[in-house]
Design a protein around this nucleic acid. Sequence first.
DNA 1: TTAATACTTGACTAAATGAATCAAGTCAGT
DNA 2: ACTGACTTGATTCATTTAGTCAAGTATTAA
Lengths: 142, 142
Amino acid sequence: MKLPAKIEYAVRAVLELALRSESGKPVPLDLLVKTQQIPAQFLVQLLSRLKHAGLVETVRGVAGGYALAKHPSKITLADVFRTIDSHILELPKPSSRKVDSEAARLFSGIWTDISCTLSKQLEVTLEELTARLRDGQLTYQI
Amino acid sequence: MKLPAKIEYAVRAVLELALRSESGKPVPLDLLVKTQQIPAQFLVQLLSRLKHAGLVETVRGVAGGYALAKHPSKITLADVFRTIDSHILELPKPSSRKVDSEAARLFSGIWTDISCTLSKQLEVTLEELTARLRDGQLTYQI
DNA sequence: TTAATACTTGACTAAATGAATCAAGTCAGT
DNA sequence: ACTGACTTGATTCATTTAGTCAAGTATTAA
């Protein structure tokens, strides 16, 4: 399924921050841009939203940069998704409920099921994700 | 999650055809438009693609209309999704694979998981869906 | 045979979204 | 004061979405 680039960028940036969170030092934008190949000014927009949502914090000045505002075990992918695109995890609108047909109700039911499954899958913390690297759970990747 | 209107329309139309498939008679466009409240010319485009994909067949002339080209047990939601939007069920592009970072690999892994789950959920036949109406499995709908 | 019903095809468009880019700041440490 | 680093708001460009328009072709009941 196609995922908006902004969400992929935000998730990768946050994962990068999680992987570097043990040093305690903030990660400069420049480093995120280079390791993740994300357009700098675009990433700034995303980090800004993550900051306002309380997921990321910033340090200004020469040795400044970005860091997670909470422990990786307290941040989920769903948090990031909701912050960057508030609509993506919404349940189906009642748009098709105006149409009172059996077909419309069937559709609404199955799509609600699918949305719920997606939401549950995104309730995974950054800590759980980074742990996969240690456990070698990425065997299906080329 | 937001789903393109064209996919919702196509699924609802096909479900309507499934529900009316026992009569053996083709369903006129007009009836689909009225029961499903879909813009006529827009629906025509979608039905045309479903026809070319072999999911729907048409009968021209006065008593003409649309009907499923196969038994409802031989058509899945995934078929309809793929026909209307060929990209929606694709696995994640290797776009993020060019970036060789741990964060990018983690992201790619989780998103592949999610895409696979979605694909599996869409492997449900129209027959299974319409059967839900009889079994009263729509209790979670308002 | 012809009028009415129904599908076919291709081009076209307005609005929204996605993906950036630009410019002019503000802030903190040396 | 200078410099590296984050902040903010506006703007741009291309693509996609969700339709609409127009000019057909096919079928059949009367």
